[in-house]
């Protein structure tokens, strides 16, 4: 019998999760969507990270690596707080006295809310690899604009038992800042490269118009507008038989969303536009394990030779 509806999807997710844990690829931590990766799993993620560097080697992109936390002020200025408050991972610390410390420990021991005793720091976990970049680009760009290669760990607070929806995950991106036309060209060029690269890994992929999960009623409008303007595309691949395909990479045209708040200008003196293409490293690795099995040595030779040339 072919499973159908929500029960079928949950069953397929649970089975895939069980396969990953049984094979020791992912190590559960007790928090949904938070895993350790085994040597075998991480070797695939590393191979993907390297592959994406090779695919963009001709782009003369500046490589920059930021830590997985970013300044709170920039998180607010780029509109993330306004549009995706539910996905935030705010970093808090403790600055109280001995009495408050005792109370904090007591609450922890009793499973009570620690929130009131903590104080927010000036940092937040980054939701996308490229977000720490834009504030550092303030000023006038060179004539040809600027291309940047960023990669690293990101956080989005959306606990789930679906292995494809991790709360902490790796993303490798190529970002462009410059004129509106070139920003759009960058997105389209990378969408082509993304489809080609993922296809060479023997993943059945296609690109679809997409929207970000903006928060609330205003968010529904922003999402509809984003789709209407065809600003965002996702590369999707089928992973669970009875469910729509899952996004494993995305291409996003930001218009002047980052250029304006962070004072980034083109050589002509206009507000810079930007675009990015992001490969979801963990999602691609999971799609490979899902399609080709839990042992990379048994994967199709052609896909292996792309990953490990």
């Amino acid at each position: 019998m072919v499973p159908s509806g929500a029960a079928g999807v949950n069953e397929a997710r649970d089975r895939f999760r069980a396969d990953l844990l049984e094979a020791g690829l992912l190590i559960p931590t007790g928090v949904d969507g938070l895993y350790g990766g085994s040597e075998r799993y991480e070797s695939v993620v590393r191979a993907l990270d390297d592959l994406i560097d090779r695919v963009g080697a001709d782009q003369r992109a500046r490589m920059i690596r930021f830590p997985p936390v970013m300044p709170w002020a920039n998180f607010v200025a780029n509109g993330y707080l306004e549009s995706f408050p539910d996905q935030m991972g705010s970093v808090h610390g403790f600055g109280g006295d001995q009495r408050q410390h005792a109370e904090l420990v007591r609450r922890a021991e009793h499973g009570e809310d620690r929130g009131p005793l903590l104080r927010a720091t000036d940092m937040v976990l980054r939701p996308a690899a490229c977000h720490p970049l834009y504030p550092t680009m303030r000023g006038v760009l060179p004539e040809e604009g600027c291309r940047v290669n960023v990669s690293g760990t990101c956080f989005r607070h959306e606990p789930s038992t679906d292995p494809f929806r991790m709360q902490v995950f790796r993303m490798h991106e190529y970002v462009y800042l410059g004129t509106p036309e070139r920003a759009r060209d960058h997105r389209d060029e990378w969408l082509r490269r993304g489809i080609d690269t993922l296809g060479r890994l023997d993943l059945p992929v296609e690109s679809v118009v997409a929207n970000d999960p903006f928060f609330g009623r205003p968010g529904r409008m922003l999402a509809a507008n984003q789709r209407d303007e065809e600003l965002k595309f996702e590369i999707v691949t089928p992973v669970y038989a009875s469910e729509p395909p899952t996004a494993i990479a995305s291409a996003n045209c930001h218009l002047d969303h980052f250029g304006r708040p962070f004072g980034i200008e083109t050589a002509r003196g206009d507000v810079a536009h930007s675009s990015c293409f992001g490969f979801g490293l963990d999602r691609i690795a999971l799609a490979l394990f899902n399609r080709h099995g839990t042992d990379p040595n048994a994967w199709p030779a052609a896909a292996r030779s792309v990953l490990w040339p």
Partner: peptide, 10 residues
């Protein structure tokens, strides 16, 4: 813009 149209809506 897309964002200002949301403010108009509200």
């Amino acid at each position: 813009t897309s964002h200002s149209s949301v403010n108009v809506m509200l």
